[in-house]
């Protein structure tokens, strides 16, 4: 049985808008976005939590792609989320998948891709006296 994951709700904020998930980590200054099958995976992780095994089994029902391809995409995506501390291991409560979040049935599975934006990090990591423009923080020297 693969590890069970939940969203790391303590450190991040997230919203799903027009099918795209946008996540922000206020402490690091990084923010993230992804869509497609990633939205389904995130919805499961944020509501009930899920293991890679469960996610692959659920996604397999919606796509004609080989299960190995789906598994590779899911595992890679979970690893990216874990590396960014957006998810964390959690207890399996046995809750079922939310059917309303099922992805649209399309013929091919597209592996979700985590997009990371770091343009705000410099703002948070700057020395507020020496690394700012004459107009002061939050205007960081380029």
């Amino acid at each position: 049985m693969s590890e069970f994951y939940r969203v790391n709700a303590e450190d991040i904020m997230h919203e799903t808008i027009d099918g795209e998930v946008v996540i922000v980590n206020l402490d690091s200054g990084a923010y993230y976005a992804f869509d497609g099958s990633g939205e389904y995976i995130w919805d499961r992780l944020s509501h009930t939590g899920a293991s890679a095994e469960q996610l692959v089994a659920e996604l397999e029902l919606h796509f004609n792609s080989p299960v190995a391809e789906i598994a590779a995409g899911v595992n890679n995506f979970l690893a990216q989320l874990r590396d960014e501390s957006l998810i964390e291991p959690g207890d399996n409560t046995g809750a079922a998948a939310a059917s309303s979040a099922a992805p649209a049935a399309t013929s091919e599975f597209e592996a979700p891709q985590l997009n990371k934006y770091t343009d705000m990090e410099a703002l948070l990591l700057a020395d507020p006296i020496h690394e700012v423009e004459p107009e002061g923080w939050p205007h960081v020297k380029s």
Binding site: I17, G29, Y117, L123, L124
Partner: peptide, 30 residues
């Protein structure tokens, strides 16, 4: 344009430039 495109444009600088009530602001912008 998509609402998420606009969200990614307005959210980061609003949240990071002003110390505020981050949770409420994030939800309000969404």
């Amino acid at each position: 344009a998509s609402a998420s495109h606009v969200f990614k444009a307005i959210m980061p600088s609003t949240l990071f430039q002003l110390p505020g009530n981050a949770q409420e602001e994030f939800r309000a912008l969404a």
